[in-house]
Amino acid sequence: MALEPIKTILDIKGVSKTFESGTHALERVTLKVSEGSFVALVGPSGSGKSTLLRIVAGLLSGTSGSIGHDLNDDVIANDIGFVFQDPTLMPWATIAENVAIPLRLRLKGLGNAEIDKRTQEVLAWVGIDAFKNAFPRELSGGMRMRASIARALTTQPSLLLLDEPFAALDEFTRAQLNEDLLNLWEDQRWTGIFVTHSIREAVFLAERVVVMSPRPGRVIADIEIPFVYPRTPDLRNDHAYSDICADISNRLASAITDAEL
């Protein structure tokens, strides 16, 4: 059986961004992402990772360059899910209502029964179906983040953008969510772009780690991570894993030194 060529789902070409304030956030970033892959973007604070993600989502526009895509809709935003840094839940609505909101906003014709069914399903994926009638305040930070991920998945997007989703969580919760996120990805094979400033998190999760320089953000390295899936927590104690983390850390350190000179 001949292997099908891997489809590029996202084609970022020479995207630059300068804010009105004069902040030069991105400098000609070029990046191809293939369908079903899991890519991590790492870089120091202010390297424009989040800006890039927002440009991809259509929440910001680039100053120059282009975003090409091969999604199931002409409008890029219709086939993506976005997970914010904070859980960003509506405090007045229950977890189920929060998770259902993308369906209510985008698929306006959908009946309540169908919405309930789909909501129930995604809540089960992230393991919080028992809390569907709770309000966000009643849940822990980790549970709220699970709800946030569930919400991004309700429309079953082809592309999931995650903007440092676990940055505010404690180490244990963070490790657990990393593993659960990977399991979901292996089951469903959406394309994932995960922004983080934790190198260890990036290497644990992704097939490919894209390293960005300090402001203005450029791609300074693009590294394949060879470990097979399913990845288990043991990987974190693996020498090869530590070596890759150290390598990326060195590259970042020298990029930061260069930027300061």
């Binding site: 976005f82 960003t88 509506m90 906003l105």
Partner: peptide, 24 residues
């Protein structure tokens, strides 16, 4: 601000944004 972005991302209409986000 993030909730506002979320509503924008899912193409919420003016009245949806008013009813489901601004008023609450």
């Amino acid at each position: 601000a993030n909730l506002r972005d979320l509503f924008r991302l899912y193409g919420a209409t003016r009245s949806q944004t008013l009813r489901r986000l601004l008023l609450p």
